[in-house]
Every structure is written in structure tokens, then in C-alpha cells.
Simulated scan of single mutants.
Amino acid sequence: MVDDIIFGARILDLALEVEDHLIISDLHLGYEEALNYQGIMIPKFQYPKIIKRMEEIHSRSDCANIIINGDLKHEFGKINRQEWKETLKFIDYLKERFQKIILIKGNHDPLTPIIAEKTGLEVYPYYSTGNFIVMHGDKIPGKWDEITEQKIIIGHEHPSVGIRSGERMEKVKCFLAGDFRDKKMIVMPSFNFITEGSDVLHEKPLSPFLKEAKHDDLEVFGVENFETFYFGKISHLLNVQQEPYPYDSHFIEF
């Protein structure tokens, strides 16, 4: 386990603590029902896991405010029954625990303003905490030179890292940290428990931020059960995987 501070932000499992703001990203509530519509029959298990994880995170945090950094719900062009039920319950849950709830618009959120209006909230394209600016990460703002904050936090990418032991590989959700243009950047993992996300070692990046940044120079911080593990830069992990025996046992000791 390593120090869990990146650029002044504290990693708290799948969340970040930044200047009295707790940040989570990419919940994709209602994902199970969307999969059921596609013929992929899985039980609706994610919401209880989200609440259980949030309870543990909240018990370890003193933040008064919470930011949901995009993709609160999953469906693009409609609000399915599961999304209505779970998003309203989740927002009520947050209102009981935080003074302010900030919703950032993600690429899955064209209809989230309807939910926000019903619950008395607003949806922001981005949000400043003071030293950090939080945005979803599906597009780079056009007026970049007008952003005065020196640190940015994005989601959207759902980063994970493929950890190999012999012939077996498992994905571990991770944070990424590095430079983007003239700023420091943190990429958050998804707060979604149906998939682990996109493997930064073996899959092409989705976010335009990741496509432009020096991908191999990004540092990887794996998270597992409230512990943070520093894996080094992506370039280091790629070099290690090319060796005859991909990982030494001490490198991934959970």
C-alpha cells in the first residue's frame, strides 16, 4: 500500500476527496435493465453494492459536499424504470448525508436534467472546487485558455489495469495521474460494479484527454478494498509484461 494523495487529492477507495468535496464518477445506474433489454439476463445487484460502498466511504470522510462526475444513469435516450427508481432513491440517500450535491453532465446524461429538476438539483458542464476543475472527460472544453485551475479531474474512461499472474489475468480499477497540456490531470475509475472498466495496458483510450496525453507517462494507482497500490507508469507496466515472467509476486500482493 502507498500514500493515497495525488496532486493534493486524497484517494478514498473509488472516490476522491478534494477541498471538502467527495467525488465519484460513472455510476451508470440502471445498467442491468439496459442489458436485460439486449437479452443479457443478469440480476439487479448493483444498487445495493453502491450503497454499501458509499456507506463505508462516508464513514471515513468528513466532506460536506459530493460531486457526481457524469453518467449517473446508463441509458442515452430514455429513462428506464430501474433508472427512475434508483436515481431518485440515490439522490434522496445523498441529501440525507451531504449539504450539497453537484451533478456533472456526462455523455450518458442527456436526460439527467429531467431527474435533476425533479429533485431540485442542477446539472453542470464542469465544476470548480477552487484548485481543481471537475469535468466528465468525454470532450475537451473549447475555451481551454480560460480555465484558471491548474488541476483537472475527469471520469469517462473507466480505467483499470490488467494484472497477470502466470496465465491468469484480473482487472483492478485504478486512478491515472499525469500531465495534460499545462495542467495536472487525475482520471477516476468508475463507481460501477458490473464491469471493471477499460484496461489501460491492452485497450485503446476512449477519452480525448487520454488520446492526447502522453499515455505511457501516466502513473497508475490501483484500488482494492480501500487500499491504494502504486504500479508505476504505464510504460513500466508494459515493459514488465514483455518479460518472460510478467510479474514478480511482490509486485501485486493483495
Score class of each variant (00 low, 15 high):
Asp109Phe: 02
Phe209Ile: 05
Lys233Pro: 02
Thr129Trp: 01
Gln46Asn: 12
Phe209Met: 07
His236Met: 07
Phe175Pro: 00
Gln46Glu: 15
Val187Leu: 08
Gly197Ser: 04
Tyr247Gly: 00
Gly232His: 01
Gln82Gly: 05
His202Arg: 12
Thr148Gln: 12
Ala213His: 09
His236Thr: 14
Thr112His: 04
Val240Glu: 13
Asp92Lys: 13
Ile51Gln: 06
Met54Glu: 04
Val134Ser: 03
Leu35Ile: 08
Ile186Glu: 02
Lys139Trp: 06
His136Pro: 01
Phe45Asn: 12
Asp216Asn: 15
Leu22Phe: 05
Glu83Cys: 08
Ile24Cys: 04
Cys174Phe: 02
Lys85His: 10
Ile50Tyr: 11
Ser59Phe: 05
Met54Ser: 07
Ile23Ala: 04
Glu55Asp: 15
Phe45Arg: 14
Leu201Gln: 06
Ser198His: 09
Lys105His: 12
Ser165Glu: 00
His236Leu: 13
Glu122Asp: 14
Asp4Ala: 14
Val123Phe: 03
Ala177Asn: 08
Phe209Cys: 03
Glu212Gln: 14
Lys85Ala: 12
Leu22His: 02
Val123Gln: 10
Phe98Ile: 04
Ser25Lys: 01
Asn65Glu: 11
Val172Gly: 00
Gly70Leu: 03
Glu33Tyr: 08
Glu56Tyr: 03
Glu33Gly: 08
Asp4Leu: 03
Ala15Pro: 05
Asn69Phe: 06
Ala64Phe: 08
Lys173Phe: 02
Pro208Trp: 10
Lys139Ile: 05
Leu238Val: 11
Leu94Phe: 02
Arg168Leu: 10
Asp3Gly: 11
His74Tyr: 06
Tyr93Pro: 05
Gly77Trp: 13
Ile133Lys: 05
His156Asp: 14
His156Cys: 05
Phe226Lys: 01
Pro110Gly: 15
